[in-house]
């Protein structure tokens, strides 16, 4: 009886979380006319994945460059570039903070951790000016670097390094292993699970960027899929026959890759978090 209740609660939770996604997906397989006339649909329609083909191949802008494929590619670059860049930069910084006695350690520490929670949205105009001064407008570097200026990952790696047994360092010192070697040969392999967890978190953050790329890029070839959604929303609002099917397909396409990353790396994700919790 109690088991049944537990399962009931869990199933209710699953339904709460997944029904909206199901509804949008199923509706995307219907004809636009059906959606306009009868609203969202609960059962699959006759159009199959036709809306996805349209969303992927049709271009939103003037140049013909901003197709769904292109936008997915740009988002992928954002997600990967951000996640990898962040992991490298923050692993190194956390290493320096945890393993060395730096004269200015606490200053560095605070400098880094002040950035922890302040989002780009509230300093966006000066950030834009900086990126433009550096000549980085309309470039992947300009899109990614300012986002790396937040210390979340440094924080996680710092926590993790502190849980690494001291004996490893003692042994390394006895062996005369240099600090660079120690980092690459011992610490990096040891951090694999943690890296995977951070990778997932950061990939999702990078992929999901909204306002920053919207302001930063003027060339359609840099449109990301989340930016494209803003475009499709105004198309839906301004069109006589709103292309709901394509809009729904875009929503599903925009969430699919990060969802897949989370599902595929699920095991490492939870494990990484458990380890950082210790």
């Amino acid at each position: 009886m109690k088991k049944l209740l537990d399962h009931g609660i869990l199933i209710a939770g699953v339904l709460f979380l997944l029904t909206p996604l199901y509804l949008l997906f199923v509706s995307s397989t219907h004809e636009v006319d059906t959606l306009i006339r009868d609203g969202l649909q609960w059962l699959p329609g006759s159009q199959g994945l036709a809306a996805y083909e349209k969303a992927l191949n049709q271009s939103l802008g003037f140049s013909g460059e901003a197709t769904g494929w292109r936008m997915l590619f740009n988002s992928l670059v954002m997600g990967l570039g951000f996640a990898i860049g962040k992991i490298i930069v923050s692993m190194a910084a956390a290493y320096a903070i945890v393993y060395f006695r730096l004269p200015l350690a606490s200053f560095f520490f605070w400098a880094i951790f002040t950035t922890l929670l302040l989002p780009l949205e509230v300093r966006i105009i000066p950030s834009y000016a900086v990126v433009s001064d550096l000549g980085l407008l309309n470039s992947y570097t300009g899109l990614i670097l300012p986002l790396i200026a937040s210390a979340t990952a440094t924080f996680y790696f710092r926590q993790f390094y502190k849980t690494v047994p001291d004996e490893l360092l003692e042994a390394a010192l006895l062996d005369n292993t240099g600090p660079v070697r120690f980092f690459i040969d011992i610490l990096v392999p040891l951090s694999r699970t943690m890296m995977a967890a951070i990778f997932i978190i950061m990939f999702v953050v990078g992929w999901n960027q909204y306002l920053w790329p919207l302001i930063m890029t003027t060339e359609e070839s840099y449109t990301t899929i989340v930016m494209g959604l803003k475009n499709i929303l105004s198309t839906v609002r301004d069109s006589h026959i709103p292309p709901y099917d394509v809009a729904f397909a875009m929503i599903i396409l925009a969430m699919l890759p990060p969802v897949l990353v989370v599902i595929i790396f699920q095991k490492w994700f939870v494990k990484g978090l458990v380890e950082s919790e210790k």
Binding site: L10, G13, V14, L17, L18, L21, V204, W207, N208, Y210, V226, L229, K230, I251, A254, M255, P258, V259, V261, V262, I263, Q266, F269, V270
Partner: peptide, 14 residues
């Protein structure tokens, strides 16, 4: 566990 974590990856704007 898998079903309940999915939505994590959805962007707020999405």
């Amino acid at each position: 566990r898998v079903l309940l974590t999915w939505v994590y990856a959805v962007a707020p704007a999405v």
